[in-house]
């Protein structure tokens, strides 16, 4: 083979590269679902700060970082398994795996490696109970939710919500080394909040879930049933939020926030319940969109109120 042949071969290799979308650093960050991660960081941080046991600031920082990394790892595993769904849905078609920038095997290896690193590092930095809890959370999200229940039941959002509700419990476990009523109440608030939050989104986003084979409540039971479900879960959420405000980590600020926010949330759910598709279409899903926005503020303000209680405690204010 002559030198010109070699050159020709090299050129054709390069033209092949030209069509390959090589992954950048941002694609790996996208694999970690950074928006979900921000919720994990915030709630885990609150769980850690409001716990009755003090933690060295550096240990606390490191622990939050590895809880976030564990959350990101489960996101990568989710994207690996759901690549077939993501290819079908318009909203997710641009993600790194369906867009062809990251291979499926690479995403799996990335998710598994980060899971292992985050669990080991959290165990070493804080305690092994917190590390095991993080491992369980990753397993729950990646296996129980993503692989098993997401494609088999319309209650998938409810079950998936549990995985998103564990981080404040892990934060609490970092400080205390265990579980208590307070940490379970923090879990319950996020757990009961998740279904109305996502179903409100499902009402106005109208993703092509049916083409992807995901049994979303809006598709399997219809939109009127989804509106009823949102209302019921909002009612069930209120006592959990009030109970959290009355617990040892709550206080007057949290109670006031819980009363106001839950009243607004129930009001929003009633508004959604009373509407049908025609009225919703007519005003561009205004009530559903404002309920969704309120749901974001709801969680942020509830956990923010717990932070205020904890920060007022050293000066003799805050708490009961």
């Amino acid at each position: 083979m002559g030198a010109s042949d070699h050159r020709g071969e090299a050129m054709s290799d390069l033209s092949a590269y030209e069509h390959t979308q090589e992954a950048g650093f941002g694609d790996y960050v996208q694999l970690l679902k950074p928006r979900v991660m921000s919720l994990v960081v915030f709630t885990a941080m609150v769980g850690l700060i409001v716990a009755p046991v003090g933690v060295h600031p550096f240990v606390a920082f490191t622990s939050i970082l590895f809880i976030a990394l564990g959350g990101g790892a489960s996101g990568a595993l989710n994207m690996w398994y759901d690549a077939d769904i993501d290819r079908v849905m318009r909203r997710t078609r641009g993600r790194p795996i369906p867009a062809g920038r990251i291979g499926e095997g690479e995403a799996l290896a990335f998710g598994l490696a980060l899971s292992l690193i985050s669990v080991l590092m959290l165990g070493l930095a804080a305690n092994w109970f917190a590390g095991a809890f993080l491992a369980f959370t990753i397993f729950f999200y990646a296996v129980v939710y993503t692989m098993w229940l997401k494609r088999s039941t319309p209650q998938n959002i409810v079950i998936g919500g549990a995985a998103g509700a564990f981080p404040p419990m892990i934060g609490w476990a970092v400080a205390t080394g265990g579980i208590s009523v307070e940490s379970v109440l923090m879990f319950l608030v996020i757990f009961m909040w998740t279904p109305p939050h996502f179903w409100a989104l499902a009402l106005f986003m109208k993703d092509d879930y049916s083409n992807a084979g995901v049994p979303m409540l809006t598709v399997t039971h219809g939109r009127p049933a989804t509106r009823k479900h949102i209302f019921v879960y909002t009612l069930l959420l209120a006592p959990c939020a009030v109970a959290l405000a009355l617990s040892s980590i709550g206080g007057p600020v949290t109670l006031a926030a819980a009363i106001v926010l839950n009243a607004l949330f129930i009001l929003g759910a009633v508004r959604i319940l009373r509407r049908n598709e025609d009225t919703a279409e007519a005003d561009g899903y205004r009530a559903e969109k404002s309920f969704f926005k309120l749901s974001l503020a709801y969680l942020f303000l509830h956990f923010g109120a717990l932070l205020i209680e904890a920060s007022l405690a050293p000066i003799g204010l805050g708490g009961w």
């Binding site: 090589e22 992954a23 950048g24 650093f25 941002g26 790996y28």
Partner: peptide, 10 residues
Amino acid sequence: RRRFGRNLGL
């Protein structure tokens, strides 16, 4: 450029 960005990030 993409490779450099990835390597720098790593």
